[in-house]
Structure formats: structure tokens, C-alpha cells
Nucleic acid binder design. Structure first.
Lengths: 232, 232
DNA sequence: ATGCCACAAATCCTATAGGAACGCAGGCCG
DNA sequence: CGGCCTGCGTTCCTATAGGATTTGTGGCAT
């Protein structure tokens, strides 16, 4: 998001410094993506301020910024709550949205890929393969992180600020679903192969194939999640 | 985002009331969409607070919420500025994004359209036809409003919260471009015909055709804008 | 037992104050 | 004349205070 910066700007390097609200924003985002803040839980402004040892003002600003991500919801005079767990309908809509955007991103990324971007993409797939995949969150956290990074990189390489912004909003929801959807890692080998197929298409410089492989991947993700879905 | 609420709650209808930050948000949004705030202009927190006769706190919150729309940008310790005018590249990216999302919306909306939604859509096209189209902003304001409403309604009827959110972000940028892109209303008759074609496809219940007509519309919008584009 | 009202605590919301950083103008020195 | 420093006003940022609203609890009447 916003780049971390040293507390003191080096002379000649006038990097934009961080203000308190930025730190609060990042802390809350991390807690949300961690699962430390559970769906439905109240996020009290005053409470968070005490927790983080700052005044309520920066917390209020951070929450206002977070609202657009869909991860917290606000009700006037009542405060913020972590967005509730996905229903089946929410999940279906999320996948429908992914199917609308991600193949386009894949196609564009394939055409506009930079060497550095390609390297990063290879690394993400490599990380997927080597990540531990235990039963507890701590164990497969790096797996989820690499998965999200793979898709985010593609969106970034598509070189379209609007599509990137649209994906990033989805990305947060996707990550949150991975945590709270009640579905662990199912068929990791299969999922890795699908990512590899997308990457291979890009390495081959075939935009249509990249888009197609992305469609197949998302559809299979949907299929696995539905097959594994817990009771509503 | 956060749902708008009536200014006065009717007795027995405990709808969530508006807080000051909501009013400020709406005022700023209107000013941005109006063109009263020009691209590049500084949006001072204290200044806006004086202007609106409120304290800086709600203004700060409203601006934080506005940032994600891309209409204002923030630099830490320096404040907010209205986003700069579109470059040709920005415009190309915007149209690319529209082409990725709007045809999908049109297809889905066609399949899921409600009678009320269809009525509203007809009304929007009707308004397009009857709107005055003079040279000054005040005169073609209602035309632009109907245009935006048409696309927004389709996004809403697609019944996908994520695609709707994605479109709404684009919609604001589109509207702002209509104002500041340096392109007035060119070939209104042509544009109206394109909207009518999309509507007809929906009336005919043909999702593929609706999507195709939407693609053609956006591409022609792009074409007209490029043909009319002022010097960079 | 159930419904209703009053009261208390927690929370949200807004205003205000003051410290910190930025931008600009004017003066000083090379 | 140009570059640098200094001072000052403006603005941002954070903390704090207090009023308004919601929420939870306990008592009372039915």
C-alpha cells in the first residue's frame, strides 16, 4: 500500500513520511487479514484507540479509509463492525466478479509483462510450491500469502490503474474468504498446477491462453470451495 | 458504500440518521462532480471546514472516504488535492476498464432485470432524448446525469455487489472526465441511439446482444472522445 | 412471567487547542 | 545576480473534552 518510510528522512531523500493514521490503517488491515478480528465483531473507535495507544482521531480516519474495502461496515451513530461472513450468494458474486476481471488482467499482463514482473510471478509460484501446508493458520499463512501475491502481481502487470484498484478491492475479500470461508487448503497440488498453467501461458506469450487458464483456475477454485462448503 | 439516509427520520421508522461527515461527504462529492472543484486544486481541510461551517474533524473523515474514489489524492502532511486532469493514457485505461466491466454488467442485468429496473432504464433513455443540450454546463447537466444514471442502473441490476462497487468507482471518474475531458457533447443523436440499442437488446431479453451493444457503445464513446480530444 | 420505563455505562460524534510540518517571502552572504 | 537561511502565516495532525446517542440493566407495574 503506502511505502514504509524511515522515521527521519535522509537529507536529499524527501520521502513522504507516515502519519499516525497510516500506521493505524496498516495495523487494522493486518488484523483483518490475519483473522485476529473476526467477522461480525465490533470495532470500537475508542477501544482501538486505547488498544493502539493513540487518540480516537487517527483511528476514525483509518476506519473511514478501510470502509471502501468492504472489510468493515459502518452504521451512523453505532460504529464499525467487521463485515459478516460470506453467504453462498456473496461467494457466488465474488467469483462472478473475479471471472469478469481476472482473465482480462491476465490477458493484459501477458502482453505488457516486464522482466521484473515475470520474475516476481515465477517466485510467487515457487513460493506456493514450497510453502508449508499444515492444518493451523500459522502453517499455511505463507501459502495464502503467495496465492494472493500471484493474483495481485498479475493485476499490477496489467498496467491499468482502474482494473488494479478494482482487483485490489476484490483481493481483500478473497483473502478474507480464504480465512473465514470455512474451507481450508483443499487440493493444493491441483491449485498449484493451475497457477503454473497461467504462468506457462504467460511465459509462452499467449494472451488468449493466459486468459483461458485464468478462467479455468477461478472456476476450479469455485468448484472446490462449493464441494467443501460447510453448512450455511 | 455507507448507505445514504433521509435527513429526517420519520417517527416509527428508526432509519439510521445522517451525521455531519455524511453531509460533508455528499457536499464535496457534488462539488467534485459539478466541476466546482477543479482538477489540481488544493482541498484544504481547515478551509473546507470554514466554508461548510463545521469543524475540521468531519471534513477529514469525509476526505478520507473520498480518497478511494480517486477523485482526490492525499499526500501525508501536505493535504488533499483534486485529482489532476486525465492524460490520454488515463483515458485509455479508463475505457479499457469500462470495456472489461460494463458488458458483463449488461449481460447480467439483462438476465436479472426487474420490472422496476427496466422502467427506470427506459426513463433514463427517455431523459437522454429530452434533455436540453446547450453549450453551457447548466444546460447539458441533465443530459450527463441521465447518461451516468443509465450505466449505473445497469450495474445495479446486474445484482453483484462487487461489480457494482467496481463500476461505481469508474462511474465517478467517467463523470469527471465528461466534465473536464475537454470534450463536450458530440454526436448526441448517435450516443442516444447506442443507448437505445442496449435497451432494446434488454427488452428483447438477449444477454449476448446486450453485452455486444454495450461494447459497441463504449468503443464509440472512445472513438468520439479521441476524435475530439484537445491538445494534451 | 412479560412489557415498559428509568438510569448508567459505553460509544459515537463534533468542536477546540496546540504542536509540528510545510510554503513563501524577504534578507543576507558569496 | 544567485543561493541559502530565517521568520511567519497557513495547514496538517493529534490529543482532549464534552454533548448526543445507543446499549444494557434493573425495577416496577400489569
Amino acid at each position: 500500500m503506502s511505502e514504509p518510510s524511515p522515521a527521519v528522512a535522509r537529507p536529499g531523500f524527501p520521502v513522504s513520511r507516515q502519519v499516525l493514521a497510516d500506521h493505524v490503517y496498516e495495523a487494522l488491515l493486518e488484523w483483518l487479514m490475519d483473522g485476529r478480528l473476526e467477522p461480525g465483531a465490533a470495532v470500537s473507535i475508542d477501544g482501538m484507540a486505547r488498544e493502539l495507544d493513540v487518540s480516537p482521531t487517527p483511528v476514525r480516519e483509518a476506519l473511514a479509509r478501510l470502509e471502501h474495502t468492504g472489510m468493515v461496515r459502518r452504521v451512523a451513530l453505532k460504529g464499525y463492525r467487521v463485515a459478516p461472513v460470506f453467504t453462498r450468494e456473496d461467494f457466488a458474486e465474488l467469483m462472478e466478479a473475479r471471472l469478469s476481471i481476472e482473465p482480462v488482467n491476465a490477458r493484459l499482463a501477458c502482453a505488457r509483462m516486464t522482466p521484473d514482473g515475470l520474475e516476481a510471478l515465477k517466485q510467487a509460484v515457487e513460493d506456493l510450491k514450497t510453502a508449508p501446508r499444515g492444518g493451523t493458520f500459522a502453517e499455511y499463512r505463507s501459502y495464502l500469502e503467495a496465492d494472493e501475491r500471484f493474483h495481485q502481481l498479475i493485476a499490477a502487470q496489467a498496467s491499468n490503474q482502474f482494473l488494479l484498484a478494482a482487483y485490489n478491492t476484490l483481493g481483500g475479500q478473497i483473502q478474507r474468504f480464504r480465512l473465514f470461508g470455512g474451507v481450508g487448503i483443499t487440493d493444493a497440488e491441483q491449485a498449484i498446477a493451475e497457477h503454473q498453467a497461467v504462468l506457462d501461458a504467460m511465459l509462452g506469450g499467449d494472451p488468449d491462453k493466459a486468459a483461458q487458464k485464468m478462467i479455468e483456475h477461478v472456476e476450479k477454485v469455485r468448484g472446490r470451495a462449493i464441494a467443501d462448503a460447510p453448512e450455511e
